[in-house]
Design a protein around this nucleic acid. Sequence first.
DNA 1: TTAAATTTTTAGACTTACCTAAATTTATTT
DNA 2: AAATAAATTTAGGTAAGTCTAAAAATTTAA
Lengths: 227, 227
Amino acid sequence: MLFLQMTISLTEENYIKAIFNLSNSNNIGVSTNSLSNHLKNKASSVTDMLKKLADKKLIHYKKYKGVLLTPKGEKIAINIIRKHRLWEVFLMEKLNFSWDQVHDIAEQLEHIKSDELIKRLDNFLGKPTLDPHGDPIPNEKGKFNEIKSMPLNECKILKEIIFIGVKNHTISFLKYLTSIGLGIGDRFRIEAINNFDNSYQIKVKKNNLVFLSNDLASNILVKIKNE
Amino acid sequence: MLFLQMTISLTEENYIKAIFNLSNSNNIGVSTNSLSNHLKNKASSVTDMLKKLADKKLIHYKKYKGVLLTPKGEKIAINIIRKHRLWEVFLMEKLNFSWDQVHDIAEQLEHIKSDELIKRLDNFLGKPTLDPHGDPIPNEKGKFNEIKSMPLNECKILKEIIFIGVKNHTISFLKYLTSIGLGIGDRFRIEAINNFDNSYQIKVKKNNLVFLSNDLASNILVKIKNE
DNA sequence: TTAAATTTTTAGACTTACCTAAATTTATTT
DNA sequence: AAATAAATTTAGGTAAGTCTAAAAATTTAA
Ligand SMILES: [Mn+2]
Ligand SMILES: [Mn+2]
Ligand SMILES: [Mn+2]
Ligand SMILES: [Mn+2]
């Protein structure tokens, strides 16, 4: 079979994105089960799709071994992520959505197919490098500007901190952070660490002290001021 | 079977939109063949879908009789058109696309599902009432602000004219109009009508005379100045 | 008003993207 | 090193949306 301009379905795009997101920096393949959990499809459905993606040379697939994206597959994944994050910026900056509302809409918008549209959207937004959750936006060539950060619960000393991202992107978590007055870019100070349960007390600007469980702190990505 | 929030697939949306666009002001049902031509699907496929849309109470369907939208179906159609035209305005006004580029991208964007998004987009654009092709944008309640216009080839007298819309939306037609310096809102004067082939000569602003075949003129919607 | 042409529907199949149930392979325990 | 458990694949099915070919209904023309 010959196809000059391979088309990739919305479903295939979502699988490719899932494989990308589940890939670790080490080169361990993504398991069928992890994809099954992530996409909420049965493992047998995942296997079907993996065969198809392998036929299209978008993934490396060997029965029972787990999968990795080919360079071609990775390029597609990164482009979808670029579109997703640019649309999130648009929704937040131009349409005044809050950071907990943008993801679900961007899940739809990321599948719109038009390179010209994304080029112009990028320009319109001033070529942003970070999305509303602090995640890097890959450039036109697919290059990520990696930001070094650590989860708050790895900070063991009382220091001035900058809040630069979230690990968890659920609406409830984002809304909670908003409710305690915490937004990307904010500076705060660790006032106390309870070494029984590793919970934190922080002081956000002029606000009162806020208590954070270790679980909460583990989903807050920070960097230490002046480091 | 019980469903509280009926979901309508992208394919169903396109059929509903097609039925709306092919419906005349008179109450003659839309034929299977006309839908088949418009959607470039076989008539048998159309029949299958009509049965499904009828089951969902979105159209009135009687075998061999042609179809009409129910009020519910019409509401859906108008909402899709509203979204399409708002996105066209966005693409043109904010992203500087030309009027011949916006339609194809809007065909994708019109299917994005989020009432909140459209409300905010509408506000962001300043609640426009016309799209880049001069077509009216229905308001949130689905009301069209009908503009009275006539095809240029129905003007039989030499008069000052305002160009307010196009009947044909193909890229080549729109590009041609651009090439002769004609855009929505422009004023021009009919300088001559050749009564052999009903072709027109018009003068656009300070430009030279432009020759328009009757076919071309029939796709240019105008109103007569001061009327 | 019958015959021919056209339109529309029905019947049966195919593809995509899912599913359940039953193998099969790989990993973990005794 | 078996036995058991877990992960993965295969086999067989379903629903949505398409198709071709054939039958039926409607329209048009003789
Ligand atoms: Mn997101
Ligand atoms: Mn994000
Ligand atoms: Mn359009
Ligand atoms: Mn338009």
